[in-house]
Each structure stands twice: as C-alpha cells, then as structure tokens.
Amino acid sequence: MIEVKHLTKIYKTPSQEILALDDVSLQVEDGEIFGIIGLSGAGKSTLIRCINMLEKPTSGTVTINGVEITALEPHELRTARQKIGMIFQHFNLLSSRNVFDNVLFPLEIAGVPKKDAAKRVMELLELVGLADKANAYPAQLSGGQKQRVGIARALANSPELLLSDEATSALDPQTTRSILGLLKDINKRFNLTILLITHDMNVIKETCDRVAVIAESRIVEVGRVIDIFSNPQTSTSRSFINTVVKRDIPKELLEQSDSHAAPSERILVSISFIGKSAGQPLISSMIKKYEVDANILYGNIDRIKDTPFGYLTLELTGPPDQIDEGLAYLKSHGLEVEVINHV
C-alpha cells in the first residue's frame, strides 16, 4: 500500500539546518491500521505530511499503490490527493460552511456533480452519526462531533488511504475512545488503510495492527503492536509502553516481600502472555509441577486491539534448578519471561 524509502527531510533556516527525518523507510500493508508513535519533535508530523506531500521531502521516495507520489507533477499530485483522506488534531473545518457544506467541500474540489455530491454527503453524515447536524456550523459542535465531520469529509472521495494526524489528541478520553471506535469500524467496513500518528500509546494499543516507534528523526522499532508490547527492543518503546502498562514495580512492593527464603532461592520475573495463553492456568500448573512458590506482586490484563494481553510480576521462591525448570515450562507454552532481578 504505502512504501516509504530512505525519506530524509532537512529544514533550512538562515542560521542552521534541522534534520526532521533521517533516512526513514517503512511499509504499510493494505487494509491495516499502522501507527507511528513518537514524542513531539520526533519527526512524526513531518513524516505523515511527506506521505501526501504537504511537506516536500529533501530526498527519498513515497509510493502509494504503485504510484510514486514524490515524483508527481503538481496537477497529478492534486488528483492523487483526492484519494488520500486526512484528519487533523484541530479538525480544520471551515467556519464559513455548515456541516453539510464542509463535507461537500472535497467533492466540490473533485468536481463531483451537485446531485451525486449531495447524496454522498448525507450517506457520510449517516455513517458518522451526524445526519441531524447537517445545518449546524462547526462552532456549534463539540470536539468529538467536529472530528466526526472531519472523518466524513476525509472519506468523501472514497479514499484508498486515510492519514490521521493526532486526530484524538485534542479530545477527552471518552471521546477519544468513540472516535477510535469509528476509525476501526471504517477500517473494517471499507478495508481502508489507515496511517495514524500519535504520542499516546493508548491509541496504538486500541487501534493499531502494527506500529513504528520514532525517536530523534529515526524509526527505532517497527513491528506488530503485540510483539512490541510483549517484547520491546528499545528504551523508547519501553517508556511508551510504561505509559499504558505499568512494568516498573513500585519499590515499596519489593521491600515489602517478607519471604524468608535464601537470596539464591528467590527470583523476580515479569511474565507477559498474549492471546490464547492468557486464558490458560499456566502459573498454577507450574506451581503444581515444580517445587516453586509464586507470589504475585503485580498483575494486569488488558487488550491490544482485539487480543487479550496480560502482564504479571511474580516473586518465585524454591530451589534454583526448580525455578529454572519452571521458567522453561512457561516459555515452552509461549509466555514471554523476563528475569527482573534476583531479590
């Protein structure tokens, strides 16, 4: 669907050059929701703007459905953009137009005949649940409603790709969830590929199939969201995950441990389990099978998009060889096991 190759963007000011994107390459598959997460200033905003050429990359290419966007003439680019919807953090609706006319706007630009366009607008307003607000002006809408109008507008010309630029960052958590739900629904219903950028790991967790972590203008990690959550490879990913799933055990909890076992017979492990294995009583099987006791210090079961994802911090006590075998048993059943430290 999207192929980004060696994308570099340098902003030149009279006094200095700022490297916003440094040799970024990535691939987005047809029909997936792909997230790019990074802190502000990491380059994610520049990256998404290079996809539809709102920003012109310094070097590198962007190819969408086999068309090299970065090589198009201005008029070809305008036609190509009609098939790439975009939604924004601050909605960017025209205050001079009511809801109906805002959604009509991209159809006017594309030169769709008035009658067809009006019908399409009403369809879209039904889809986003705002058919009754057709005559309202943006100033009369809540943030969530404005973003729904933004989504309807972005879908007007039946795009192949939807770009989402921090679309939920200005919304409260509840509204965020409903907007993300709408995006997931659209993705499923129309098999529409969505590329979104965010600084909120919750957004990634709830909606995305795959994620790229961007830091200091480079992509530092790419993969399935589940893999990144269960086995992050970089400190940036880890700190993003920590904002959603607590992986650091409070010091107080560690000190509280009143086990009398010898230090060599105590170990602290973190275990994450995904999907099916989340439903199996593997910990209790391990306790029965081996001479190991488990003390749960922290636990959490969550959902990554549609997959259950659990996380446990355990203090295991027992003979070292039994502990090792117990851990091997858990690993053999597909759990991610990480030894945090010997207490």
Partner: peptide
Amino acid sequence: EAALSMGAN
C-alpha cells in the same frame, strides 16, 4: 493545509 490535502488548487 486541509484544503491542500483534499487536492484543492
């Protein structure tokens, strides 16, 4: 920017 993203001239 929004208008540009829709392909407006």
